[in-house]
Design a protein around this nucleic acid. Structure first.
Length: 203
DNA sequence: CATGGGATTGACT
DNA sequence: GTCAATCCCATGC
């Protein structure tokens, strides 16, 4: 049987909670899917977030209802996928940064132009390419699809998390708002050894 | 209307 | 380690 997507209420919570809880869940688009192994949280109160500038044409999705996809173009080339969180009028989202491929690996490899499993979804630009997600899917529902997030498969234990600074930003670099499945080889970068820190022991 | 800066990736020294 | 590709959009004149 096919799992039902996470309900909208899952996203209508503090973005840091959602970022942690999304690790281990499954991102799916048209039969191609992967287990989420890396996320980052963004909130309009801090300058690394696009929503920091307030409501504009670009950020309207972020300030919209939770459980929608915020997809934007990065560096002119890549589409980055986020899950909008918190109530309407709060600009907050979780960036999906890496997946462990689960289904549709052949199509992923074809779209990516590479066949090594670890190179298919180990980065936010890579995974959107592998899943065939582009800017047209911005503002679409993550419950209704076509891009959906499914709960952690039944019987699967919640992953142990490690947290650390977010990648590739120049502002608010000190916030430890990146979350990875401990030990996963599918994350976008190897974990900095000095920053290993079980998320459960951080507050 | 012109400009500049990216929540990245892959190729290359 | 360095660096270019490439385009959306916020900002400022």
């Amino acid at each position: 049987m096919t799992a039902r997507p996470l309900p909208a209420g899952f996203y209508d919570r503090p973005v840091l909670e959602v970022a942690r809880d999304l690790v281990g869940c499954v991102l799916e688009h048209e039969g191609v899917s992967g287990r989420i192994v890396e996320t980052e949280a963004y909130h309009h109160s801090e300058p690394a977030c696009h929503a920091y500038v307030g409501l504009t044409a670009r950020t309207s999705t972020l300030f919209g209802p939770p459980a929608t996809a915020y997809v934007y173009r990065s560096y002119g080339i890549h589409a980055l996928v986020n899950a909008v969180c918190e109530p309407q009028d709060v600009g907050a989202a979780v960036l999906i940064r890496a997946l462990e491929p689960l289904t549709g690996e052949d199509l992923m490899a074809q779209r990516r132009g590479r066949d090594r499993l670890v190179e298919l979804c180990s980065g936010p630009g890579k995974l959107s390419q592998a899943l065939g997600i582009d800017l047209e899917l911005n503002a679409r529902s993550l419950v209704e699809g076509p891009v959906r997030v499914l709960p952690r498969p039944a019987g699967e234990a919640p992953p142990t998390l490690v947290s650390g600074p977010r990648i590739g930003i120049t502002k608010a670099v000190e916030l430890p708002w990146r979350f990875c499945a401990a030990g996963s080889r599918f994350v976008s970068r190897p974990w900095p050894s000095g920053l290993l820190e079980p998320a459960g022991t951080t507050r």
